[in-house]
């Protein structure tokens, strides 16, 4: 539990970060809240020779509204997400999910950017960003580009992020007013990653589901956007048979690992249970 040797950098601007990352290539890693990277370094599973600390970089913190869209800076902490009035009013599922991440001490340091950028399948925010249809804002030596959260994850710890690029924030359209939502997470204890978790956002009109979005956490080597399960809900009254069908479709896309949380079979079924419970709660909350 003793990390290897590294150089520590503390730049002030995104430009400097990108320059450092370009110079050092895959020997450099950015560090945001440090709550994923530092444990990996202590276990020597990660041994970056250059650590680029983002905490003095201007312009990476905060939640802002721009018409129908919300932008969140990469260095915004989970605690700040929980406290955000903008999110509470427009997108309360983020607060609900953030409250299920680790514990208060971790949430004071852990950031949204750190949670989504690295492709750690255990993290909660990636599936939530897929559920919201969010876009990741990336900046690199060649300028900025945007990648959909649903296209960003390739495999565990492998993402669309290229060498020299920094994830500076996320942006998503506000879910419609009166939408129903729920983030359901099964875990062994406080601080644990999900055995399985499901994010659901849907909207109802006259007893009929007009839009639905479902994504799953930690039941594959990437977050999973459950397109077919989402589609199955639209145009229905979310009756029992429909929910059963959506649950089965959600379960069918999972490929969980067997680990201390349980064998793969269990985790698949729990993805189903979490999906069911999230749909039911979202339905109740929808106006």
């Amino acid at each position: 539990m003793i990390p290897g040797d590294f150089e520590y950098h503390r730049p002030n601007s995104i430009g400097e970060v990108v320059s450092l990352l370009s110079t050092h290539g895959d020997e450099a890693r950015v560090i945001a809240g440090g709550h994923s990277l530092i444990p990996m370094m202590k276990l020597r599973l990660a041994a970056p020779e250059h650590l680029v600390d983002l905490q003095d970089v201007a312009g990476l913190v905060g939640v802002s509204e721009d018409g129908g869209a919300i932008t969140i800076g990469a260095m915004t902490t989970q605690t700040e997400l929980i406290a955000s009035k903008v999110l509470a009013e427009n997108c309360p599922i983020i607060r609900e999910a953030a409250l299920l991440i680790a514990d208060p001490q971790v949430r004071y340091c852990g950031t949204l950017g750190g949670n989504v950028a690295n492709g750690d399948p255990g993290n909660d925010m990636p599936a939530l960003m897929q559920c919201l249809g969010a876009t990741y804002l990336l900046q690199g030596p060649d300028g900025t580009r945007e990648v959909d959260a649903r296209d960003y994850y390739e495999a565990a710890y492998f993402t669309e992020l290229k060498d020299g690029e920094l994830l500076t924030g996320v942006r998503f359209e506000k879910p419609v007013v009166g939408h129903g939502y729920a983030y359901k997470k099964l875990k062994r204890k406080v601080g644990d990653y999900a055995t399985a978790a499901a994010a659901v956002i849907l909207s109802m009109n006259g007893g009929s589901c007009v839009s639905a979005s479902i994504a799953l956490t930690n039941v594959g080597d990437t977050p999973l956007y459950a397109q077919a399960a989402s589609d199955a809900l639209v145009g229905t009254a979310l009756d029992a048979a429909t929910i059963d069908q959506a649950v089965a479709l959600a379960e069918s896309i999972t490929e969980p690992a067997s680990d201390g949380r349980g064998p793969a079979e269990y985790r698949t079924k729990m993805a189903g249970v979490m999906t069911r419970r999230a749909i039911e709660e979202a339905k109740e909350r929808a106006q």
């Binding site: 204890k189 406080v190 990653y193």
Partner: peptide, 16 residues
């Protein structure tokens, strides 16, 4: 040896 860390080895917190 499986799960020789406090992530896997269950030490209950005040919450549990």
């Amino acid at each position: 040896v499986q799960g020789a860390s406090l992530m896997d080895y269950f030490l209950p917190t005040a919450v549990e």
